[in-house]
């Protein structure tokens, strides 16, 4: 029982992480029907951005005070992610807005590999895993028989809070309305005075903020980062977005928690244990894509000509 509870706790924490990445996938897909394959790399650059702030910007004294260090890293990571995402949108995706559908996907793949390699080659020490400071309270929490690292709890809370804020923003604000309008019909939205480019840029930026924050928190939680964390967690996040019905914000969050739970439960309860948890998630992803492409909780896919 203790193990089960522990795994559920771990799963929820991991789900919280995945949710922050999955939201970026789902929003970009919702607006321009692009699987932004390189979104995982935005997450990764965010983590490295946070690390860079910690190592080279913060004075040693500030590094020790978590309520100074962590916010600085979060802001730094988010800024790096946003810059990367906007450059990506402007130079790689925007010119292809009207190209055949394979073209942006191949481009996304190229961007993804490019960013991975860029970080691996040019970030000092990044050719293997780089230690990431635990810039938060180090003492774990003990609840009954289970142990939760403080940084994990923080990740979960931040993720849930940000998801709720995002959902409220998209449903409630003027810009959110513009986003939904653009998602449904960019041409009509343009006629209504909405600038689709602005909306798309904003979507990328919001997704990047979430991913960047997620990246820094991930580093704090796991204690090391490497250039490939984006690829792997990006795939999980994509699986989550698909599971929840890509394009739907709430779906992505639910999907992320499902993925998190499955991964951590598979470690204990499914044949093969930790070595095969990825395999189960990918099998789930394929099954969902094949049998229920609109996602477990989504509505039927809109018919597109």
């Amino acid at each position: 029982m203790g193990t089960l509870l522990q795994q559920i706790a771990n799963g929820l924490i991991f789900g919280g992480l995945i949710a922050m990445v999955a939201l970026g996938y789902t929003m970009v897909y919702g607006i321009i029907q692009l699987i932004n394959f390189a979104h995982g790399e935005i997450f990764m650059t965010g983590a490295f951005g946070g690390l860079a702030v910690y190592s080279w910007v913060l004075p040693p004294a500030a590094q020790q005070i978590w309520y100074v260090a962590l916010p600085a890293m979060l802001v730094g990571g988010a800024i790096v992610s946003v810059v990367v995402a906007l450059l990506m949108e402007r130079f790689a995706y925007r010119p292809l807005r009207n190209a055949p559908r394979l073209a942006p996907l191949i481009t996304a793949l190229g961007v993804s590999v490019f960013l991975q390699e860029l970080v691996r080659i040019f970030f000092p020490g990044a050719s293997s895993a780089v230690p990431f400071p635990n810039a938060f309270i180090t003492a774990p929490l003990h609840i009954g028989s289970i142990t939760i690292p403080a940084s994990g709890l923080l990740m979960l809370i931040v993720s849930v809070v940000l998801s709720i804020v995002l959902e409220t923003y998209v449903n409630g604000s003027r810009m959110g309305r513009a986003m939904r309008a653009t998602a449904q019909d960019p041409d009509t939205a343009r006629l209504m005075g909405i600038n689709p480019d602005r909306v798309i840029v904003l979507t990328f930026a919001i997704g990047a903020v979430l991913a960047g924050v997620g990246g820094v928190l991930y580093g704090t939680y796991i204690h090391n980062v490497d250039p490939y964390i984006g690829f792997q967690n990006g795939l999980f996040a994509f699986a989550a977005a698909v599971l929840g019905g890509i394009g739907s914000i709430r779906g992505a969050v639910i999907g992320a928690f499902v993925i998190g739970l499955i991964k951590n439960l598979a470690d204990i309860y499914l044949p093969g244990g930790t070595a095969y948890d990825y395999v189960w998630i990918f099998i789930l992803l394929i099954a969902v894509l094949v049998f229920r492409p609109q996602g477990l909780f989504g509505e039927a896919e809109r018919v597109r000509a």
Binding site: I35, R101, L102, L105, L235, F238, A239, V242, A275, Y276, Y278, V279, F282, I283, L285, I286, L289, V290, F291, P293
Partner: peptide, 21 residues
């Protein structure tokens, strides 16, 4: 059943499964 980019992801997932396995 699936088209375009969804299919690409299915094949990607298959490739990853192969590597893991």
């Amino acid at each position: 059943r699936v088209r375009g980019d969804y299919l690409a992801i299915v094949t990607l997932a298959f490739g990853e499964i192969f590597v893991r396995v």
